[in-house]
Amino acid sequence: MFLRCFRAENRKLHASPIWILFFLLPVISAVYGTFNYLQNLGILQDQWYSLWTQHTLFYALFFYPVLVGVYAAYLWRLEHRGHNWNLILAAPVRPLALFLAKYVVVLKLVLLTQLLVFGLYVLCGKAFAHLPGWPPVQTLLFLLRGLVGGQCVIALQLLLSMLIRSFAVPVFLGLAGGVAGMLCASKGIGLAFPYALMQVGMNANKSEDLLAGQYGGFLLASALWLALFLALAHLLLTRRDVRA
């Protein structure tokens, strides 16, 4: 049942040119990141680590939640228009399965985006920045941590787009969340806010490991936020009368 939902949601996403965004944002980030790195070699002396921060800073801070927001809004748009809600909820599918299917589809896309970011990072590092050797394994870890941290944002944005019938407003809320996350992370309470977990995970703005010794807290926070959002989604989907 879940697999059927997943396939349907997957098809929806591939049917639209929205994937262009998933491709364009990392490429732009990579271009500017490399350029900025090369312009500031005097200050940025940590080589592979410095290049990493240049590539991922704005992406992790702002554009990741916005990107996720756009995907999430797009997946709910078809239900919001044309009273598809009735169709969906009358189908022999558990409502949470539907939500999870969307979650997994976006997760898949985000994973691909992360891999693209990493691929571009390595490419630019060797081809343009002429950095020696290969990037430290830790950057790959940062990448995966970013995904772990950022997955709860996927659930949150899906929840927002489910509740708010407007397409664009949840996207802006994602941006606002990214800003708030940045502020939280800079004040040191990053683990307490879902949007901040992505930035902290990706280690986007510092060369030293932000999460040293805090992995437990990080993973716990990630899991808790996800559980909370899924529980809310389940509650809202089953309790609320279908107000198509």
Partner: peptide, 8 residues
Amino acid sequence: CVGVVGAL
């Protein structure tokens, strides 16, 4: 999407 790319 244009707004998003534009902001970046």
